[in-house]
Computed example of a mutant assay.
Amino acid sequence: MSAAPVKEMDYARDMAAAPEILPAPRMGRWFGVALVALVVAWIGYQILVNPGFQWPVVGRYMLHPAVLSGILMTLQLTVLVMLIGTVLGIVLAIMRLSGDPLLSFCSQAFVWFFRGTPVLVQLVFWYNLASLFPEISLGVPFGGPKFYEVSSTVAISSFTAALLGLGLAEAAYMAEIVRGGLLSVDPGQREASKALGHTPWQTFWVVVLPQAMKAIVPPTGNQVIGMLKFTSLASVVALQELMHSVESIYSRTFETIPLLIVAALWYLIMVSLLSVVQFFIERYYSKGWTDRVGPMG
């Protein structure tokens, strides 16, 4: 008999004779499970028996015309703000990475200002722009002739103020997201594209940006979900989005808690749907990547 089978038999005999190792008791885990179960049971009990929730009122207002109108405005504002933020963010990211000192400085200054000031302050500022500039005009600066002129109160409505306040702030965040995604692409890809005779714009749109999407899509999806909730800030400029619609109802009926529950439920529904869409978009752009690097990266 060779030495290898003998060693295997000795190893098997030693393993059989070795004492069984029992896992250590996990008392902390069972205590945590019991605590979580107790909290969940208490929350469920309050939801079922606490009359303050007023579930019949919640059911009555879930499909109220004012609430549905506010939902449509919320979705419309979210889509337009993200379009403005994404397009402007791509332009700012390209400016930042262009190598031109002036363009890079302008991009950094924009991001510094709009990312550094609260969105609520920006909304209120744009809504009250008329107090600073009563009229918006196009023409020769410094007192020259004006070719077009309009009152600021007409040009800056609640919807316009919300678009400007939310869109410019979102552009600052999207610029950093896009810049990070572009930097994640191997520089060799650009060199290979140049070797094939591509122009700089062809290199960006055909080679760099599609590869950067793997790094851009996940945080962008989070920004969309966040923006859906941030639109509630537009209620301070009297825009009839979901939160303002709910506030208008409970200011008359004094049914504050059930109307807030209505708003929370609708936000949860919309965020859940967006999360599903984000999942499928991320899976689409990660095709080939997860197969190549494996589940653990």
Rank of each mutant, 00 (worst) to 15 (best):
E247D: 14
V208D: 08
L242A: 08
V277W: 04
L138Q: 03
G59L: 14
E282M: 03
P210R: 01
A169N: 09
Y285M: 11
Y285R: 06
D10P: 11
V271P: 01
L102W: 11
W289V: 14
G188K: 09
I136F: 01
V293F: 12
I216P: 02
M82V: 05
L75G: 05
G70N: 08
G139D: 00
M27D: 08
A192K: 08
A215S: 15
L259V: 14
Q223F: 03
L138Y: 08
E247F: 13
A24F: 13
E176Q: 01
R115Q: 03
F142V: 07
D100E: 11
E135K: 08
G226S: 02
H244C: 09
P134I: 08
A171W: 08
E170I: 07
L196E: 02
R26G: 04
Y61E: 00
V79R: 01
Y250R: 02
M174P: 07
A171F: 04
S157I: 05
A24N: 13
L233D: 00
L273H: 04
I257T: 06
G70V: 07
T117L: 08
R29F: 15
N50K: 12
F133G: 09
A238I: 12
L274D: 01
G99I: 15
R115W: 00
W266C: 06
K214H: 12
K229W: 04
R179K: 14
R179L: 14
V206A: 02
L168A: 01
G89K: 00
G144R: 12
L72S: 04
I225W: 04
V36S: 07
A264N: 10
F254T: 06
L97W: 13
A175Y: 02
P25K: 05
A264I: 14
V33E: 03
S104H: 06
S98N: 13
P295R: 10
D10L: 15
E191M: 05
I21H: 02
R292G: 11
K229G: 01
Q54N: 05
V36E: 01
L97Y: 09
V36C: 11
G143Q: 10
I225S: 06
A175T: 04
S248C: 07
F110T: 12
G59C: 04
R179I: 14
A215E: 14
E176M: 00
A192V: 04
I90L: 13
T153E: 10
A263M: 14
F114I: 02
T160F: 06
G44P: 07
L242I: 10
Q223N: 00
L259M: 15
G70E: 06
M27V: 15
Q46K: 15
G226F: 03
